[in-house]
């Protein structure tokens, strides 16, 4: 198929995603939307952290740990965001807009369209990330006087960029998996998002060190690409602990490849089942 058509499809999908996201409110509210939830979640863990430290027997506040949690929670926005948008996508296009079958029948078909929408999700998440980082710093460091030891000039940008790029593949794979599941099911999109992102939040070492999980939990943690993604990001930004960046990247690549295989696999099965059972234009979702 013409590469041109694929590019056009991806481009349109990104544009469409942008149009849909910004439609219901003016850009200001839109920005707030992308800030409020991640920021509130950051504040929750931040307060837990501060209060927990205060109440602990030693009563000591560990700024290194705080920075660990801060960065982890901020970058987790990629997961929540891509998941949310990918999970609703199929349902909306199938039932509300009634376009899913026409997209499916277009030359580039669903996968490229979904890729475009997912990329839009990644872009939005990046916006959200920057806003949350900024406001988070403002609130914790500026307002509450919490020292967050981040040396902005010392960030290892090549490593950061590399981790983000590999991470992006992982999020896209996740997005495809969710789309696949949503094609096969109906009305589970919200629960699905909650469970998958909850699992990743718990086992991905987002706000605490995975080492304190029970051993089976650590096994799960070690299998998740998000664990290595966050480790890599943290190392690039914080340079904490002795760390073998190369091995970590290798694990990240490995688990991401696993995620991609899973994502494509689930999506392929969904495409097949959709044709077998006529799910692409199913109306009775309720």
């Amino acid at each position: 198929m013409a590469v041109n058509t694929i590019l056009r499809t991806v481009k349109q999908a990104i544009w469409l995603g942008w149009k849909i996201d910004t439609n219901w409110a003016n850009p200001l509210v839109f920005a707030i939307y992308y800030l409020v939830r991640p920021l509130a979640s950051l504040l929750i863990v931040g307060f837990i952290f501060l209060i927990g430290s205060l109440a602990s027997p030693s009563g000591v506040f560990d700024p290194q740990y705080f920075a660990y949690m801060f960065v982890g929670n901020c970058f987790f926005v990629y997961v929540t965001h891509v998941m949310m948008s990918m999970s609703i996508l199929i349902h909306e296009d199938r039932v509300h807009y009634e376009v899913l079958k026409h997209i499916y029948l277009s030359p580039a078909s669903l996968k490229w369209y979904i890729l475009g929408r997912a990329l839009n999700g990644v872009l939005n998440a990046s916006t959200s990330l920057i806003l949350t980082l900024g406001f988070g710093l403002l609130i914790f460091q500026g307002l509450l006087g919490v020292q967050i030891p981040i040396n902005w000039l010392g960030i290892d940008f090549p490593l950061l960029a590399l981790s983000l790029i590999i991470g992006m593949f992982c999020f896209l794979a996740l997005g495809f998996m969710l789309c696949g599941i949503n094609i096969m099911t109906s009305r589970v999109q919200f629960m699905l998002t909650e469970y998958v992102s909850g699992t990743l939040y718990l086992f991905g070492g987002v706000v605490f060190l995975p080492e304190i999980l029970p051993s089976w939990g650590q096994t799960i943690s070690n299998a998740l690409p998000i664990t290595y993604f966050l480790k890599s990001i943290r190392f690039a930004i914080l340079h904490q602990t002795s760390f073998d960046a190369q091995t970590n990247i290798a694990y990240l690549v490995l688990t991401t490849v696993g995620a991609i295989i899973l994502g494509i696999g689930v999506f392929k099965i969904a495409e097949y089942k959709a044709r077998r059972d006529g799910l692409i234009d199913r109306k009775e979702e309720y």
Binding site: I48, I51, G52, S56, G198, Y201, I212
Partner: peptide, 21 residues
């Protein structure tokens, strides 16, 4: 439930008293 557990672990990591859990 999952997020919840994450918060409990966070308290645990901080050595906060058990009431917090």
């Amino acid at each position: 439930m999952l997020t919840l557990s994450a918060y409990v672990y966070l308290y645990k990591m901080l050595n906060a008293p058990a009431e917090f859990a």
